[in-house]
């Protein structure tokens, strides 16, 4: 079934008080919520499901794990880029890609928290942290998935421009997916905000996205000489 486009609240944490779902597979096109059997911990359909889905309860440990896993997967992509040179470059490029995402999570996101407080947005610190870790997890997962393709290109293509295009396009894709996830996760809480807050957010959110993109690009430009041609 199709519908005309309409604004859809973000999928955030499931309703805490809902009756646990019966033991059954989720519909094929959307596994949706993690399966939960009575009295047991949440179980997930797959590694990706566990990485991308938020738990019902607030758990800083889970969010830290998601963040770390996302950075690790992103580092795989960096390592693949470093294969073009080999040796130490593999490690340095792995750290470089992860550094870009870390900069956004550690620098841009806390700054955005201050902005949210200034405009009185009904977003808790945990909600912001969850949105950030979710964004990093998604971006990292995409980059990890593209690592083999990146390795193929950097090792077999002679033309440096092609390598740069492939590398930056992959980073841009991951960044776009991460940003989309971040904005979607914050949409529902913001829908309940006052009119003034929502007005301020129409400026603050794009500004944050722009700042995060420029910050990540700057870090990657400095840390990934394979893509920039620097030595």
């Amino acid at each position: 079934m199709t519908a005309e486009p309409m604004t859809m609240p973000a999928l955030s944490a499931p309703f805490p008080g809902a009756v646990p779902e019966p033991v059954d597979e989720t519909p094929p096109a959307n596994p949706g919520r993690p399966r939960e059997e009575q009295g047991q911990e949440e179980t997930f359909e797959s590694f990706a499901h566990g990485l991308l889905e938020a738990t019902r309860a607030e758990s800083w440990v889970h969010e830290a794990r998601r963040l770390g896993t996302g950075l690790g997967l992103a580092a795989l992509f960096g390592g693949a880029l470093g294969l073009r040179v080999g040796g130490v470059a593999i490690g340095s490029h792995a750290l470089g890609v992860a550094a870009g995402l870390t900069a956004v999570a550690a620098v841009a996101s806390p700054a955005f928290a201050i902005v949210l407080a200034l405009v009185n947005a009904p977003i808790s610190g945990f909600t912001l942290a969850r949105a950030t870790s979710g964004a990093v997890a998604r971006a990292g997962l995409i980059l990890g998935g593209l690592a083999p393709a990146a390795a193929l290109y950097v090792v077999t293509v002679e033309d440096a421009i092609t390598v740069s295009v492939v590398g930056f396009a992959s980073l841009a894709l991951a960044g776009a997916i991460g940003v989309s996830s971040f904005a979607t996760d914050l949409r529902t809480p913001l829908a309940a905000a006052s009119r003034d807050t929502r007005r301020w957010m129409t400026v603050a959110m794009p500004a944050f996205v722009l700042f995060a993109a420029v910050l990540a690009l700057r870090v990657w430009w400095l840390a990934l000489p394979v893509l920039t041609g620097a030595r």
């Binding site: 797959s46 990485l51 997962l141 998935g145 593209l146 690592a147």
Partner: peptide
Amino acid sequence: PAFYAVSAV
């Protein structure tokens, strides 16, 4: 791996 990641995301 790319298909796995894209479908998950």
